[in-house]
Simulated scan of single mutants.
Amino acid sequence: MPGDGAPDSKRHAPATLRNRDAIVVVLRDWLPATGSVLEVASGSGEHAVHFAAAFPHLDWQPSDPDPAGMISIAAYRAEAGLANIAPPVAVDAASDVWPVDRAEAILCINMVHISPWEATLGLFAGAARLLAPGAPLILYGPYVEPDVPTAESNLAFDASLRSRDGAWGLRDTSAVKAAAANAGFVFAERRPMPANNLMLLFRRT
């Protein structure tokens, strides 16, 4: 969660160890062969170093709005010693100014439900500024889907999130798709993932 963990050390998010390889399988189908991937809301940085190792022909750009998260990302990057992972940059998804001017793909894991809705709208707006037509924006996390029963564990998670911050909570995929369309993206594919998560692929029109 944002704000969790010691501010001067590497953070550890247990879910990264459980989901990272399943995510890699999907990314192999959706990411371009070469270029730069901007990861928005990299969190601890554990995903970033794992994905940079899995995709040596891609340049990985981690980012996070939290200074403590930036410290953790930098520590994992230094430990990994990989040439294709850049120093983290501060990106607030809701801002209309990002310190990145281009990317061939954007990945965002577990941010949409742990941030205000404005962050999701800003994510699509920022991606529209950076990505060329056809380039992918990839989301991962738990969602609510119309006409699909929501798992009890996800309902409990949603209630927990909203009790912690009223602006957080699982988003309806129809609302996410509408926001994407308004920003110039077309919904391309849905992949079910372990633990009642989804990966959603959008492409810049």
Score class of each variant (00 low, 15 high):
residue 142 P to I: 05
residue 97 V to W: 06
residue 109 I to D: 10
residue 185 F to L: 02
residue 140 Y to Q: 11
residue 195 A to S: 15
residue 98 W to L: 02
residue 151 A to C: 04
residue 77 R to Q: 05
residue 103 A to R: 01
residue 23 I to P: 05
residue 65 P to I: 15
residue 90 A to V: 09
residue 25 V to P: 09
residue 159 A to Q: 11
residue 21 D to F: 07
residue 103 A to Y: 00
residue 108 C to T: 08
residue 56 P to H: 01
residue 161 L to N: 13
residue 30 W to V: 14
residue 204 R to F: 02
residue 195 A to E: 14
residue 140 Y to D: 11
residue 100 V to D: 01
residue 101 D to I: 04
residue 133 P to W: 00
residue 76 Y to V: 06
residue 162 R to C: 06
residue 201 L to P: 03
residue 73 I to M: 07
residue 11 R to F: 05
residue 117 W to H: 02
residue 111 M to F: 06
residue 115 S to R: 03
residue 39 E to R: 06
residue 104 E to Q: 13
residue 120 T to H: 03
residue 60 W to T: 00
residue 74 A to S: 09
residue 150 T to G: 12
residue 154 N to P: 15
residue 79 E to Y: 03
residue 8 D to F: 10
residue 72 S to I: 11
residue 89 V to Y: 07
residue 40 V to F: 07
residue 5 G to W: 15
residue 7 P to M: 02
residue 201 L to K: 12
residue 88 P to D: 06
residue 12 H to L: 07
residue 163 S to C: 11
residue 117 W to Y: 09
residue 60 W to Q: 02
residue 98 W to H: 00
residue 46 E to N: 10
residue 182 N to R: 09
residue 170 L to D: 12
residue 20 R to A: 12
residue 190 R to W: 08
residue 92 D to P: 04
residue 97 V to N: 00
residue 82 L to N: 00
residue 75 A to D: 13
residue 75 A to I: 08
residue 202 F to Y: 08
residue 192 P to V: 14
residue 36 S to I: 00
residue 50 H to S: 12
residue 177 K to V: 04
residue 152 E to H: 11
residue 136 P to R: 05
residue 131 L to W: 00
residue 25 V to S: 12
residue 139 L to P: 11
residue 85 I to V: 14
residue 64 D to Y: 04
residue 196 N to I: 08
residue 172 D to R: 15
residue 64 D to H: 08
residue 174 S to E: 11
residue 136 P to I: 14
residue 204 R to P: 03
residue 65 P to T: 06
residue 131 L to E: 01
residue 83 A to K: 10
residue 113 H to Q: 13
residue 58 L to W: 04
residue 78 A to V: 07
residue 182 N to K: 10
residue 180 A to S: 05
residue 111 M to P: 14
residue 121 L to F: 03
residue 34 T to G: 03
residue 76 Y to W: 15
residue 154 N to L: 10
residue 146 P to V: 02
residue 136 P to E: 08
residue 32 P to R: 10
residue 96 D to I: 01
residue 83 A to C: 10
residue 32 P to Y: 04
residue 143 Y to V: 13
residue 92 D to M: 08
residue 8 D to E: 12
residue 94 A to G: 13
residue 166 G to S: 14
residue 199 M to L: 14
residue 75 A to R: 12
residue 104 E to W: 03
residue 204 R to D: 05
residue 88 P to E: 01
residue 32 P to L: 04
residue 92 D to L: 03
residue 12 H to A: 10
